[in-house]
């Protein structure tokens, strides 16, 4: 039980003993007694921060070192590390000349309220409550003759998905957005414009690129250019 868990012994306010007690308390709030100051030991305590110089660095020595020592792919636009924070034009980015004609829209993924990553995608009530549609600005929809609820195909060189479109001013012109986590469901009988089976599950990973980011070596999940037409 939460209240008897040793990790919670010193919790303030004390944890309730039962669910009924918790319900009576209602919202459980914990306030910290002192204001929290970021880098307090550096600012007020005279201690060094964990950079090579011990100071807050605008020119980062460690980034400079990484940028010099690590191996990058010169064929991957934006695959480098700089010592000073700066804007790096990248493959499939807003300024990428190679993809901007074929794939004029930038696609971003987001966490939909309809599931937790891919968990619970199979719950029909949730699929009904939160529509899996790609969001598109009215100006982009106009040129494509699209209306909310139309089924569209969205593709780039990595794959093709088929799903409904939602026309909404809540996304910027030139940008489309799709909740991540839907389950991949290839229709092997139909090959999309990308040359792959059409993913009728609407999984964003069908369109993302397996290209680690320069520093974190993370997934560049939101770096995608796509084209969309009515299915």
């Amino acid at each position: 039980m939460t209240s008897t868990n040793s990790a919670n012994t010193n919790a303030q306010p004390t944890f309730p003993n039962s669910y009924a007690e918790a319900q009576k308390i209602g919202v459980f709030r914990a306030f910290s007694k002192t204001p929290v100051l970021a880098l307090d030991s550096y600012i007020n305590g005279g201690k060094a921060v964990s950079t090579p110089s011990g100071k807050i660095e605008i020119y980062s020595l460690s980034m400079a070192q990484k940028g010099k020592d690590w191996i990058f792919n010169p064929n991957v636009k934006g695959d480098y590390i700089t010592a000073i924070p700066m804007y790096q034009p990248t493959w499939d980015g807003y300024e990428d000349e190679d993809t901007k004609d074929d794939y004029p829209l930038q696609l971003a993924g987001y966490h939909t309220k309809g599931r937790t990553h891919s968990s619970y995608h199979n719950v029909p009530w949730l699929r009904e409550a939160a529509e899996d549609a790609v969001w598109m600005n009215p100006t982009d929809a106009l040129g494509r003759g699209l209306r909310s609820g139309d089924k569209v195909q969205m593709w780039n060189e990595r794959g093709t998905v088929e799903l409904p479109v939602r026309i909404t001013p809540r996304v910027a012109p030139g940008v489309v957005a799709l909740g991540q986590g839907a389950w991949y469901q290839p229709d092997i009988a139909r090959i999309g414009r990308s040359g792959h089976p059409i993913d009728v599950g609407g999984c964003i990973n069908t369109l993302t690129r397996y290209q680690p980011s320069p520093l974190a070596k993370g997934n560049p999940q939101h770096t995608n250019r796509v084209q969309i037409v009515k299915a």
Partner: peptide, 12 residues
């Protein structure tokens, strides 16, 4: 009531 906006989630 009857304002200039629109219903954005008709499918839901």
């Amino acid at each position: 009531v009857g304002g200039s906006g629109q219903l954005l989630n008709p499918a839901e």
